[in-house]
């Protein structure tokens, strides 16, 4: 899965949940715990990536850019492990 695909899909989830419009991938996300946990569930369900919550905090959701990097990193680690 390409980086832009992941970012676009995350953008859709966050926008539909919060009702806000994200104009750029670097835009600061004012994300709450409800949306944060939904995104974690969504990533696991639709992308097959189990995020390690002990390594996540609110800074992980600073922007779509930052969070996409985290998802990609987990993807790589899980690919290497299997």
């Amino acid at each position: 899965m390409k980086r832009t695909d992941i970012a676009d899909r995350l953008k859709t989830v966050v926008e539909s949940q919060t009702g806000s419009v994200i104009n750029s991938y670097d835009e600061a996300l004012d994300i709450d715990s409800f949306t944060m946990m939904l995104v974690i569930t969504y990533v696991k369900e639709t992308m097959g990536v189990k995020l390690d919550v002990s390594r996540l905090d609110f800074d992980s959701f600073k922007s779509l850019h930052v969070f996409t990097d985290i998802v990609l990193k987990h993807m790589e680690e899980q690919r290497d492990a299997s």
């Binding site: 715990s33 409800f34 946990m37 939904l38 974690i40 569930t41 969504y42 369900e45 919550v53 002990s54 996540l56």
Partner: peptide, 28 residues
């Protein structure tokens, strides 16, 4: 507490059968 416990609850078998939105809402 909240984040690890959410992941624990969300992955319970009885919740996993539900659609993603409902499952998230209940687990939350």
């Amino acid at each position: 507490v909240f984040m690890p416990y959410y992941v624990h609850v969300e992955s319970r078998p009885w919740l996993r059968r539900l659609p993603i939105g409902l499952r998230h809402s209940l687990a939350f």
